[in-house]
Amino acid sequence: MTADEIAAALDDASGAVEPGPSAARARQPSGRGEPATSWADAFAARTVAVEGGHLHWTGATGHRGTPVVSFRGQVETGYRLAFRWHHGREPEGNVRPRCDYPGCVAGGHLADRKLREGGGS
């Protein structure tokens, strides 16, 4: 899947999550031998679509196996990026997969505290 396909699948045509103002030049490889040009590109380089609509994380993991990605000196969890792109809002509390696929980062398979408590999208 290309970065554009991932961004479209996550309901974010631009694929952009703005890094902080002090962000340095991208150093994270895109998986194609070149630096990532967007958060979506960095994310897409670390995911593989699998059966059942799941998105398998192939990149680095942090504390407790949480998917992490960096772009322009900023670090973000794959869960929070995919959640923002899919739901169009900032997550409240921790974001975790609701499906049974370990480490799935498909936006529609993720829930924050608000969704887990039945508060809608």
Rank of each mutant, 00 (worst) to 15 (best):
I6D: 07
A40F: 07
C104Y: 06
H54G: 07
E18D: 00
W39G: 00
L110M: 12
V50N: 04
R116E: 06
P29Y: 11
G88F: 08
A49D: 11
M1I: 02
V75M: 15
F83H: 07
G107L: 07
A106M: 04
I6C: 11
G107P: 05
G53R: 07
G108I: 00
D11F: 14
L55M: 08
A44M: 01
S14E: 07
G53A: 05
N94K: 15
R96W: 14
Y101P: 02
V50K: 02
G88V: 03
A24C: 12
D41N: 07
Q74A: 14
C99M: 02
E76S: 05
F83Y: 15
G93Y: 05
V95K: 13
I6G: 02
C104I: 09
A44T: 02
R89H: 11
T2Y: 03
D100M: 00
Y101G: 04
E51C: 01
L81M: 13
G108C: 02
G59S: 02
A42Q: 09
A111V: 06
T58L: 11
R64G: 00
E51Q: 12
V48E: 13
F83S: 08
A13H: 07
S14A: 08
A106C: 01
E117C: 13
R72M: 06
R32Y: 00
Y101V: 10
T47Q: 05
E76W: 12
E5D: 09
M1Q: 03
C104R: 07
G65F: 06
G107S: 08
R84F: 10
A7C: 04
T77M: 14
P67T: 08
E34P: 00
A36F: 01
F43I: 14
E76A: 13
K114Q: 12
S30D: 13
G62N: 08
D12P: 01
R84G: 09
G65E: 06
V75A: 14
A16L: 15
R89E: 13
P91Q: 03
G108N: 10
A106V: 02
E90A: 15
G20V: 00
E34H: 11
R80V: 14
V48F: 02
V17F: 07
A42N: 10
W39F: 11
T77E: 13
L115R: 10
G78I: 05
E5A: 08
P97T: 11
R64A: 09
L55S: 06
L10N: 12
G88E: 00
C104Q: 02
E5F: 00
P29H: 11
M1D: 03
M1C: 05
E92R: 10
P19M: 08
P97L: 07
V69K: 11
S30F: 01
A82H: 13
F71G: 04
E76P: 01
R116S: 05
G88A: 04
E92Y: 11
G120D: 12
E76L: 10
A13M: 01
P102F: 14
R98F: 09
A13R: 10
T2M: 01
C99V: 01
H87E: 08
H54E: 09
V95A: 10
R98D: 12
F83Q: 05
T61I: 11
T58K: 06
Y101C: 07
G59P: 03
S30N: 14
E90L: 15
G93Q: 08
V48H: 01
G103W: 05
G15M: 03
S38L: 02
T47E: 03
A7M: 03
A9S: 09
A60M: 12
E117M: 15
G93E: 04
R96T: 15
P91R: 10
T61L: 01
A3W: 08
G59L: 06
